[in-house]
Computed example of a mutant assay.
Amino acid sequence: MNKYLALILTALSALASADVPNNLSNAIGSIDQLENIPENVAPAYTTPPKDVGNIPVTFPHQPPLVPHSIRGLQVTKNANQCLACHAPEVSPTTGAPRVPESHFKDRDGNPTGETSPRRYFCLQCHVQQAEVDPIIQNKFDTIRENQGK
Rank of each mutant, 00 (worst) to 15 (best):
L123A: 05
Q137T: 14
I37W: 03
P43H: 08
N22S: 08
P92W: 02
Q81E: 15
S13N: 09
N22P: 02
D19G: 07
D51N: 09
N54Q: 12
A18P: 01
R144C: 02
L73C: 09
K50M: 06
P63H: 13
F59M: 13
S91G: 02
Y4V: 14
G113W: 03
G109N: 15
S116P: 05
L12F: 15
L24E: 04
G95C: 10
E114V: 02
A44L: 12
Q62K: 04
D106G: 13
Q147Y: 15
V41Q: 08
F121A: 06
V99I: 12
P117F: 09
S30T: 14
A16P: 01
K149C: 09
L123T: 07
K3I: 15
V90I: 09
I70A: 02
R118E: 13
V66K: 07
K3G: 07
Q81D: 14
D133L: 09
V20S: 06
P63G: 09
G148Y: 08
L83H: 01
M1Q: 00
L24I: 11
E89A: 08
E131L: 01
I136S: 04
T115R: 00
L5G: 04
G29D: 03
D106S: 10
A18R: 03
F104R: 02
I136A: 04
P111E: 14
Y120L: 00
D133R: 07
A44F: 10
S25T: 15
E114F: 07
L12E: 11
R118Y: 13
N110C: 05
T142Q: 05
A11S: 15
